[in-house]
Simulated assay, not measured.
Amino acid sequence: MPKNQPVGGQAPVVQRIRIRYAKRGPLRFTSHRDFARAFERALRRAAVPIAFSQGFTPHPKISYASAAPTGVGSEAEYLEIGLQAEVDPQQLRVALDAALSPGLDVLDAVVAREGSLADRIDASRWLIELPEVEPAVAAKAVEAFLAAEEVLVERMTKQGRRAFDARNAVAFFAVTEQSGAPSGAVAARCAIIDLVVRQVTPAVRPDDVLSGLHVVAGLEPPVPPRVTRLAQGSLTPQGEIVDPLDADREDAPIGGR
């Protein structure tokens, strides 16, 4: 075995790239497992020098952060890859975007600096479209939700049905005038909700908050809602969400978030 060959035969990671991608249109129904398979195929098509784990069944060095549920659109999904050779992140972004199906779109790529990607994500912003629901009706339901000290909802988990508080995780909740989602036109009679949820345990998802609206106000949309994650990152005291890739950019201060 050559002197510089690592044990297990795998080349070491020399560069880490953090990527932001979107799930749009019909591709929002892609499960996380299906996306992972599609992304690995895209890495091969784009000839990305991906690093692999050691052992009898090496796996590509890919780590995902807070994947959106199946059926939910997103403009802010994140992952990190480890590479065996250095690449230009913008050239990588273009190559991967071309290798993925339209609707799975690579939006940004930066060289990872210090710190964990997961540690920079503590909240998500969601836009929820409720067709056939009057905005005034939705606004009253949101007001009742915010006025409650606790909103208990139930969800089936691996440990069975579990009740938890959906109110505590909500940092911002309002009915807005216009859609901020890039998905297209919204029906004339449609309540549009802007929601910011903190990451807590157990995780509170948009469907849990909608269940909470049913609990406190009896709101039950006649057709399925359309949900889009607009952002995720660290929540500032002013209520803004900071993109987790900002701290990796060349003009970001070392050690800053």
Rank of each mutant, 00 (worst) to 15 (best):
M1C: 10
K3V: 15
N4Y: 13
P6N: 12
Q10L: 05
A11I: 12
P12F: 14
V14E: 00
Q15K: 07
R16M: 04
I17P: 00
R18D: 01
I19P: 01
R20G: 09
A22M: 08
A22I: 11
K23T: 01
P26A: 10
L27C: 03
R28A: 11
F29T: 12
R33W: 03
D34G: 08
D34H: 09
D34Y: 04
A38W: 00
A38N: 02
A38Q: 05
F39G: 03
E40D: 09
R41A: 05
A42G: 10
V48E: 02
S53G: 12
Q54R: 15
G55S: 10
F56R: 09
P58S: 14
P60V: 13
Y64G: 04
Y64H: 08
A65P: 04
A65S: 15
S66W: 13
T70L: 12
G73T: 06
S74V: 11
E75P: 03
Y78N: 07
L79M: 08
E80W: 03
G82Y: 04
Q84R: 15
D88A: 10
P89R: 14
R93I: 06
V94K: 15
A95K: 14
D97N: 14
D97M: 06
L100Q: 01
P102S: 09
L104G: 04
D105F: 08
A112M: 00
A112G: 00
L117E: 00
A118L: 11
A118M: 06
I121Q: 01
S124N: 04
S124L: 05
L127I: 15
L127K: 08
I128A: 08
L130H: 04
E132M: 14
V133N: 02
E134W: 14
P135N: 14
P135K: 15
P135G: 14
V137N: 06
V137M: 10
A139P: 00
A139L: 09
K140S: 02
A144F: 06
L146G: 06
A148Q: 06
E150Y: 08
E150I: 12
E154C: 13
R155L: 02
T157H: 01
G160M: 02
G160F: 01
D165S: 12
D165N: 14
A169C: 08
A169T: 07
V170M: 03
A171C: 04
V175A: 03
Q178T: 13
Q178W: 07
S179P: 02
G180M: 11
A181F: 03
S183Q: 14
S183C: 11
G184H: 10
A185G: 08
A185W: 10
V186W: 09
A187N: 10
R189D: 06
C190T: 15
V196R: 05
V197G: 12
T201W: 13
P202W: 06
A203S: 08
D207R: 12
D208M: 09
S211T: 07
S211L: 05
L213I: 10
L213V: 11
V215T: 04
G218F: 05
P221D: 10
V223N: 11
V223C: 12
P224V: 12
V227G: 05
G233S: 09
P237R: 13
P237L: 10
Q238K: 10
E240S: 15
V242Y: 03
A247G: 01
A247N: 01
E250R: 15
A252T: 05
A252F: 02
I254P: 00
G255Y: 00
G255H: 02
G255N: 03
